[in-house]
Each structure stands twice: as C-alpha cells, then as structure tokens.
Nucleic acid binder design. Structure first.
Length: 580
DNA sequence: GCCGTTTTCGGCCCGACTGTTTTCAGTCG
C-alpha cells in the first residue's frame, strides 16, 4: 500500500469521525497523521515490522502506528470498518459539496436517510430539505448549485494556468485607485504543482477601514465573475467560468505581513506557528502577532518581523508545510534554497531538426536572452518517427551544426551537443555508441511501451541507466506524456542506481505536467542523486516554464549545489558521468 | 489520538461569513 493511500484512508476516517461527532482533537490527530504520512519519502508499508520508525514521525504515536500497520496488512482498520457500517462511504462525497459539513451530512442522514449526491439532489428538488432545522430556500439552492458544479468540474488547477489567471485578475483589481499591490497567497505562493483555489491579498490606501467598502464593491462587480459566493466587509469570494474559486481579501498596510503569513499557510504550518506563539505569551492572527496580556502588537507589517519575533529565521513560502521547517528556522539550519536567478543553463531543448519550432541559433539566442551561460540541444531520435527523430547519420550532421552555432556565439553562451535518446523495450538506446560518444549530453527517455508490467519497466529503465553513454535520465516518471498515466515502476530503485553511477536525474518542467513531485525530488536528494531542471523547450517561449519547476525544487529543500544547472558550463560538464 | 522548557494528565489555533435559531451554529480557510 502506497503512502498516498494510507494518507487518504486516514483522512477519510477523520471525515467519518466528524460525521460521528467524535472528539474534535482526536479527529485532528487523524488529519495530522494523514498529512505526515503523505510527506514521507520512504514507503511506510516497508516499515510495518519496524514500528519504532513509524513512531519517529511527528504526529504518529502508538495508536496511529498500530492503525497504519493494520491498514497496510489488511487494507482497513477496525474503527474505520465500524464507522462504515454505521454510515455509508458515499457520504464522504457529500462533504465535498459547498456548505455541506459533517453536521449537515449527519443531519440529512438521520432525518432523511440521504447518503449520496443523487438522493440529496432528489430530496432537495422535492422540498424535503426545507423542513429540516437551519434549512431555508437559500441553503437548498446553494446545495443544488453545488451539485451542478461538482459534476461539471472537480479537481485542481495547474500552477501555470492559475498564475496566469491570478495575473489577469490582479490587473483588473489594480485599476481601482488607491490599490498598491495584489499578491497571490495560498498554495500558489507555496509553489504547489496544482492549486485548489486562488487567494489574492490586496492592499493600499484604499484598503484602510474607512474606504475598503468601495474596493469590495469594485471586486464584487468584476466582469469575469461567473458566480458570487460571498461578500463581506473585506472579503469577496467568487467562481470563474472554469469553476476555479477565487478569494480576494482587502487589508490595511499595517497588518499586511500578518495577513500574507496567515493566508499563505499551509494550515498545518500556521497551526504549529500559533502553538509556538502561545507558548511565548503571544497570540497570532491574520491581523497581528500580539501580546496575550495587553493585546499590544508585536509584529504585523511584514512576514519577516513576525517570524523573527517568534525566534525564527524567515521561512520561504515553499517550505511552509510543517515538515521540519520551524525547527530548522529555530536552529538557523534552513537551507539556502535554489532560486531562478541561480539557473545558468537549460540542457533539454528541441529544434526544427525534430519536433521543435525554432532553429539551433534561435534557441541559443533565446537562452542567451534569459541570461543563461549554457544550453544543450537535445532533439529526438529515430525511434520517435512521429517527431521526425534523427538516425545516426542525421545525428552526426546535427552535432556538427550545433558545434557550428556554438562557435558562432563566440563564448557569449556555450551550446552543447546532445540528443534525447529513446530507451527501447529491451533497455537499449536507439543510436550507436559511436554516435553517442560524440555528444556532451545524452538524455535517455522512455516514450513507448507503457503497458509493461512493473518489474519489466523497472528492469528496462535500469538497463538503460547502465549504458555508460547515458548521462541524464529524462523525465523519469514519464508524466510528461500527454494524457497518459505515469509509468509504474520502482522509482526508488532507479534513483538509487542513478546515484551510484553518477547519472543525473531530470526534473522536467515541460507542461502539461511537472515531472517529479517535490516528494520524489526530496527522495532523489536523500539518495544522493544529482538533479537537472529543464524545460524541454520546443519553442523559444518554452524557456518561460522554468519558474514553475523551480518552485518544486524549493519545496524539496534543494540548494544550488544539488542542481547542476546552477554550475558554470565547465563545472556542468565535469559534473556529468565521465564518458567511457 | 498526540504530546511534553507549566510532562504521563490536561491541554490541543483563530477569525470571518452565512443563513436563519432573534443570539448562534455550522462551514470554511
């Protein structure tokens, strides 16, 4: 059983306990445990015979460790089974509807026997809900609308789409006079791969208490609003046409730092921070860090002031997951995180020789314009016929052409010659060794034969890694490949072997999906892998995808030293596995 | 159910918004 599954089952148990009106603190420990399990890089299923290691995880005690062992061994646990007999698994879906919380789910179940979305819809349309306490027509309409939205779109939104949307909305909000800045908070600011909603914080003279009402009106009447959810004194919530929920909050400058801290989250990080505040005699809210005894403000205007007042170094948003960052901030051991400015090269790029849209020279100029010191051209090879992949003869000509451009750039940027070689079904590469020997960068990627069994896929990738000419393992989880599920193989074993052999592991930020999750990146670092971040550029604008991948590197606590794109061109070449 | 610089019991984060119960419970982040 995978960690994500264990986490989901624990979280669902927490939902069931809430419906059962159990002790809220007990419920919270199930949620905490679920979060903790999800963040682990080792698979807990391998630890069931060593419960001590489970107990070492913060938030997991004796009882929870026993629960996890039970889940891994039997697929469930006694309490969960009891709750599922008492209630219905479909009730968990109901919790996903807006304004449907555990109390309401329990109420409609006991009063009407409603346990799933379809019967809830029927009951609502037949007017049965209106007789229930705390139910009026507005509540019923809200639920019906919620069911409609739930069926239309449920899920999360990609970080690049959400960023673009946030920028569009911010521009509209800034049109109002007296607005200084609009900042995205929430999981977007934390750099998560996907976001569930958008949090925008607005400040400026117009957001002071006496004027804020006008700003609220301005935001609530933005033309792109599809559905207004709520409008308060300093908050507006709405849905866009694509279903994305946007929460906009207007805040006076004096408390902007506290608000930014608060709404950036994560929830678990904030809870831990507030516990710390209380121990120090403070109370932390979205308005300020204040003394508990006389309510006097200790810090509020900037995040750094708040963290410092709590005896902590400033914690970058990407680290705020209550995953050891608070302890590290206290001990001054936070890592010097990698930053977009550290990146000096991109070593996975395509040209018109295969399926790219620009020439070698155009790509080189674009990389130079990004401020890079090096670029590697890595077109597809012959096995990918649909991309016009190169065979050995064309590859050798292409290498010569790349060398020519490298000379023409006269040292302003180094252009390395490479190829994104296809890993075949038997684990061999689809170009001759003598051709591969002429390249600086050989990326090996799996593009075909998705349906191989787990063991065969693992063996296939391991065999490719053994090839002494392969220097970078390309998008190792295969998540790039459109509309396909990620490969199913033993990632940990592959990463271990890459570390042993000095094969660089790629974090490919080409969309539609980022390649390695922050958890897998953390695992790669723990196992001693060198990492390369690349946009897999097929056009000169694709280099712009770099920031979204950087966010994942930061979430994995990576420093410039961990990532070979931060090196000088010479250091970069030396960092690669030596050629035979 | 977890946890310990007020330790093995008694705590456990904070506030806004909504709808409808004329005083607040439930939901949400």
């Amino acid at each position: 059983m995978e960690n994500v599954t264990i986490a989901r089952l624990l979280d669902e148990t927490a939902d069931l306990l809430e419906i059962d009106a159990a002790d809220p603190f007990r419920i919270r420990s199930y949620r905490r445990a679920a979060e903790a399990v999800e963040q682990q890089t080792t698979q807990l299923a391998t630890l069931v015979d060593e419960p001590k290691q489970l107990l070492a995880i913060a938030g997991i005690g004796k009882g929870m460790a026993a629960n996890i062992v039970e889940l891994v061994k039997t697929g469930s646990m006694p309490m969960r089974e009891e709750l599922l007999l008492k209630y219905k698994p479909t009730m968990l879906d109901l919790l996903k509807l807006p304004s449907m919380g555990p109390k309401t789910v329990a109420l409609i179940w006991s009063a009407l026997g409603v346990a799933d979305i379809d019967s809830l819809e029927t009951a609502a349309k037949e007017g049965k809900l209106n007789d229930l306490p705390r139910f009026g027509q507005k509540q019923v309409d809200k639920i019906l609308k919620g069911i409609e939205d739930f069926r239309k779109n449920s899920g999360r939104y990609r970080i690049d789409d959400a960023t673009a949307t946030a920028e569009r909305i911010s521009a509209l909000i800034r049109e109002f006079p007296g607005i200084e800045s609009v900042t995205p908070a929430g999981s977007l600011r934390r750099g998560k791969e996907t976001v569930g909603d958008l949090d925008l914080l607005v400040t400026g003279p117009a957001c002071e208490t006496d004027r804020v009402a006008e700003v609220v009106e301005h935001v609530a009447s933005l033309p792109l609003i599809a559905n207004l959810i709520a409008k308060g004194q300093n908050k507006v919530s709405f849905n866009l046409r694509n279903g994305l929920q946007v929460d906009v909050r207007m805040l006076p400058r004096a408390s902007y730092g506290a608000a930014l801290q608060y709404f950036t989250g994560s929830k678990m990080h904030n809870v831990a921070l507030r516990q710390r505040a209380i121990k120090m005699g403070y109370t932390l809210s979205e308005y300020a860090l204040a003394r508990m005894d006389d309510n006097s403000v200790v810090a509020a205007a900037s995040e750094a002031e708040i963290y410092n007042a709590l005896g902590l170094d400033y914690i970058a948003p990407e680290l705020r997951e209550n995953n050891g960052e608070i302890e590290a901030a206290q001990n001054h051991t936070l890592p010097g995180l990698i930053d977009l400015r550290d990146i000096r090269g991109d070593v996975h790029a395509h040209t018109t020789a295969s399926d790219g849209k620009a020439t070698i020279r155009e790509m080189a100029e674009a990389a130079l314009a990004k401020g890079y010191s090096f670029l590697a051209i890595t077109d597809h090879t012959k096995n990918l016929a649909m991309t016009n992949g190169l065979d050995d003869a064309r590859a050798i000509e292409h290498i010569a052409a790349i060398r020519e451009v490298d000379r023409a750039m006269e040292g302003r940027i180094r252009v390395f010659a490479g190829m994104e070689v296809d890993i075949l079904g038997d684990g061999t590469l689809d170009l001759e060794d003598s051709t591969l020997a002429q390249m600086d960068v050989v990326i090996g990627s799996v593009h075909t034969l998705f349906n191989q069994p787990y063991e065969e896929m693992t063996d296939r990738i391991l065999r490719a890694v053994e090839n002494p000419y392969l220097r970078i393992l390309g998008h190792p989880t295969g998540r790039l490949l459109l509309a396909r599920e990620p490969f199913n193989f033993d990632l940990e074993r592959v990463l271990r072997r890459c570390a042993e052999l000095g094969v660089v592991v790629e974090h490919n930020t080409g969309m539609p999906r980022l390649d390695l999750s922050d958890r897998n990146l953390r695992l790669a670092k723990e196992l001693g892998c060198r990492i390369s971040i690349n946009t897999d550029a097929h056009s000169i604008t694709d280099f712009d995808q770099m920031p979204f991948g950087i966010a994942q590197l930061r979430r994995a606590w990576l420093t410039p030293l961990d990532v070979i794109n931060t090196y000088t061109p010479e250091e970069f070449l030396r960092a690669l596995r030596p050629r035979p």
